[in-house]
Nucleic acid binder design. Structure first.
Lengths: 257, 257
DNA sequence: GTCAAGCATTTGTCCTGACAATCGAACGAC
DNA sequence: GTCGTTCGATTGTCAGGACAAATGCTTGAC
């Protein structure tokens, strides 16, 4: 019998895919964005095959490496799975968003909570041993200390203490009260890259209980975090305390093979 | 004046790099491993230039895309930084290990703590609504429930409740007491891929306080986690409670650009 | 009927070649 | 001296081709 092509359900066949070669946006990125949108939107359903790379490249007028680069970026995000001899499938899960360096301000804002910030202290002081070690600066050298109380709906949520290397950023108190620290850093051209975090819990002491509006001894969620930019330089060391009754960390981990 | 080459400190020049074309290990992987080892070992110091890709390719008898693939994998791990027009540098930081899906058992063992596990329950039961939603199975269908108490140095550390889809894994009580759940899953050929976590804190209730050896009302660290394998299937849903006085989560986040 | 071998399909790896975009430094005009 | 300009160096993007390896189905042997 003459060859009968295997019954493949190429889910991209009916899909509107196109690239604009005049655009300055890289071709592989245009393609990966369209595929990601189709997955997000449900046009590409979980488990559906993507159609083989060579045919896809031909249909779009691209080379195979370019198509592969687009697909690979989505595989890295955990949205697609490739299997040799089989094809590329949309991942099967509830998993959607990749992990992000969570910013309390952004988290609250995304939840529609209208965060408010009160700056308690905004000073330059000599670095303690702990801060110096975390930031990788000499002990006793100048570092910024920013201490803030963050609320939502008028209720205190968290007490934030952050140390930053001096001179990294203009830390205007007004801006600190109207936006988040991470956003300020990004706007200053600092690209955040990685962070080392430690999350624990402890009972509230008398002073912080009063500050946060909790009973003494109430459980608090604590986080210490050192954040690094893309050159590996430490740009922030934070010691935060959250009211456990009002906040929990949510995040997603991707395992690198 | 005739061209004077820019003073580049190509740190790879004195480095012993070589690839074995007879090996079944991909060339780019051989190279990336050697570079990673050199970084880990300190032979490649933070901030040092890597030497340009074309020259490196020529020196090793490889093509540029292969070298790029090796370098890219290390960039993805956060060990290297590329800058157009400048070169590729070893990242500058304390950051070394990429993030991992932390396993309490492995964490304790790595810390030399000799973890011990007592299995409190190991049963199959119908899935509650919460568990069914987390695992993506029908409500009321069979799921495994494993409840364990984990100790170190004879002191209880954490109370672990895990739900798994029925039939995924043979959950032998003996093995559960001698190793970790994640290790069992990996040994069964399940490749863990991603996890969605929520970390919070609360005060200990009377029952769990007794179980963990804490006072009632003592702060506890809680974690809920759904883990997915590489096909996006949920393979585990855990609700864990840790003694805040004895444990904190440490992990590292990498930000995807 | 069952199991092994073969085959088509698809991704994985690797090569060569080309041009664009960006960065840093040297150079020159003022 | 200071500020643009130019230029070399380096990574970023893209093309097209070739072969290897794994998978799953089909076919054939027993």
């Amino acid at each position: 019998m003459p060859k009968q092509p295997r019954e493949t359900t190429d889910a991209t066949a009916p899909l509107q895919l196109s690239v604009d070669r005049a655009s300055p946006v890289p071709l592989y990125f245009q393609l990966s964005q369209q595929l990601e949108a189709a997955i997000e939107h449900g046009t590409l359903t979980p488990g559906s095959l993507l159609g083989n790379e060579i045919e896809l490249a031909g249909r779009l007028g691209l080379s195979r490496p370019t198509v592969r680069q687009a697909i690979q970026s989505l595989v890295d995000k955990g949205l697609l799975v490739r299997r040799r001899g089989v094809g590329t499938q949309v991942v099967h899960s509830q998993v959607k968003r990749p992990l992000e360096l969570s910013s309390l301000y952004d988290d609250l804002e995304a939840a529609g909570q209208r965060p408010a910030t009160r700056v308690l202290r905004n000073v330059v002081e000599p670095a303690s041993a702990e801060v110096a070690a975390a930031l990788g600066v000499p002990e006793g050298s100048d570092v910024h200390l920013v201490e803030r109380l963050r609320s939502a709906h008028g209720e205190p949520m968290a007490h934030l203490r952050n140390h930053l290397p001096a001179g990294l950023l203009a830390l205007d108190t007004g801006r600190l009260e109207s936006t988040g620290l991470y956003r300020m850093m990004r706007n200053a051209g600092i690209t955040l890259h990685s962070a080392r975090q430690s999350v624990g819990a402890r009972a509230a002491g008398g002073e912080e209980a009063g500050l946060l509006g909790e009973e003494e001894g109430a459980p608090l969620l604590t986080m210490q975090r050192t954040t690094f930019d893309d050159t590996g330089r430490a740009v922030e060391f934070g010691s935060h305390v959250y009211r456990a009754s009002r906040y929990a960390f949510e995040f997603q981990l991707l395992v690198r093979p």
